[in-house]
Design a protein around this nucleic acid. Structure first.
Length: 406
DNA sequence: TCTGGGGTCCTAGGACCC
DNA sequence: TCTGGGGTCCTAGGACCC
């Protein structure tokens, strides 16, 4: 018998959490944004979306589309907290829960049906529990399918607050007329390329000779062929298993385009500190430092250096980042800087934590894993608010306590 | 008030060694 | 003063996703 996979996808997650927390903005068009002036909309409520607001718009553009829009500054700890609590609900249905991002998860419920009934009963029960835990403004959409790829497509089908099932015998029909660009993993570039060779739907993609796809796309050709047929054998990997980061980094769009070398170094120090702190906390060290630079004209590039040893301290990361930047000979004002480490290994040293960290918020395994995987500063919003650039002091990062939904 | 931030995976080409 | 192949590591960039 085939598997039954669910994909649980929270609807307009950040916006929904904010609306749940603040009754005044419920049923209103809102946009969740960052704190800096040069911010964009990260998520908008469905009320805003219906008026043309889209992710990635500047505040200015969003307001032009929807003059009544209300902007809310993002609050990352609140979203992580909600995510942790969602996972604990999902884990009560099966241990096979894979967190795909902060607001979506895959569940393998193949073995759960004896206990909880058919997939639709499980879906209804999950929705009931989510409502009970978070309130009626935080909702999810759920896809039911024989594999992760199809479950992901199914969850999008009836958004928001809906569900959709693709039974094994319905897969061909479902894919027949689905535009290739709607498929997970096929972005604008690939879509254009496929359209050029007369492939517009997943049905057409699945029927296309795999040999031709391979000659056009290399190894990707074979993957595209399976994707066109709705084939995906990847297992649901439970949280914590084989889950380790490949890289971690932070980027920052500066308040103004910068030419001053001292100011650039100060920002590199700040970013190095964020990276180092996160790496120390999750006990990673790395031997490659990556610097990302975006000029005022948006030309963006990376430079990296691989060292002969593993590093983790702010100082080591910062020194390497500075050397990299010195080699670049900046040609234009800098709009964005990024610092990251890769070539990671886990647990090579156990370095002392900062005193503030020793006080200890060893909250839960899941909490750590989410931080670890998605970054507890994955939205650094707000962290710059108190930063005095001239003194160069590093702001305290907002606390994890409080800010619960519901 | 033009265009955020966090990732993963893949590829091509060069350096270097055997 | 030529010829070649295999393998590994590293860099830079692109595509894609949330």
């Amino acid at each position: 018998m085939g598997k039954v996979i669910l994909h649980v996808d929270m609807d307009a997650f950040f916006a929904a959490v904010e609306q749940q927390c603040n009754p005044k903005i419920r049923k209103k068009p809102i946009g969740v944004v960052g704190s800096s002036e040069r911010t964009v909309v990260a998520t908008s409520s469905y009320e805003a979306r219906s008026r043309g607001v889209k992710t990635g718009m500047t505040k200015h553009e969003a307001r032009r589309a929807c003059p009544e829009i209300h902007f809310v500054e993002g609050n990352n700890p609140k979203y992580i907290d909600t995510s942790v609590r969602l996972v604990s609900i999902l884990k009560s249905f099966t241990p096979l829960v894979e967190l795909a991002s902060i607001d979506e998860a895959f569940l393998d419920v193949t073995g759960s049906m004896a206990l909880f009934g058919d997939p639709i009963s499980i879906v209804q029960e999950i929705k009931r529990r989510v409502k009970e835990e978070f309130g009626s403004h935080v909702t999810c959409s759920i896809g039911i399918a024989p594999n992760k790829l199809l479950a992901k497509l199914a969850s999008r089908k009836n958004k928001p607050n809906g569900f959709f099932q693709i039974r094994p015998e319905e897969v061909d029909t479902f894919l027949r007329d689905l535009a290739v660009g709607k498929m997970y993993g096929i972005g604008p570039k690939l879509e254009k390329h496929l359209n050029r060779i007369q492939i517009r739907t997943c049905g057409e993609l699945g029927r296309f000779p795999v040999s031709v796809l391979k000659s056009c796309f290399g190894v990707l050709g074979e993957i595209l062929h399976s994707v066109g047929l709705g084939i995906d054998s990847s297992p649901v990997i439970p949280i914590g298993e084989g889950c380790f980061a490949r890289s971690m980094g932070h980027t920052l769009t500066l308040r103004k385009d910068e030419t001053d070398a001292e100011a650039i170094r100060l920002n590199l120090l700040y970013l190095s500190e964020l990276v180092s702190r996160r790496a120390r906390k999750s006990n990673y060290c790395g031997r490659t430092v990556v610097v990302m630079i975006r000029y005022s004209d948006f030309h963006t590039f990376t430079r990296r250096e691989t060292l002969g040893r593993y590093i983790i301290s702010t100082r080591d990361i910062y020194d390497t980042a500075c050397q990299i930047v010195e080699r670049v000979f900046l040609k234009k004002p800098v709009r964005l800087l990024g610092v990251g480490i890769s070539n990671l290994v886990r647990g090579c040293f156990q370095l002392p934590l900062f005193p503030s960290e020793e006080r200890g918020f060893r909250v839960s395994e899941t909490m750590d894993l989410i931080n670890d995987r998605f970054g507890d500063f994955s939205l650094t919003w707000g962290t710059l608010a108190g930063w005095d650039r001239r003194s160069g002091s590093i702001p305290e990062v907002s606390g994890k306590e409080g800010n619960r939904v519901g």
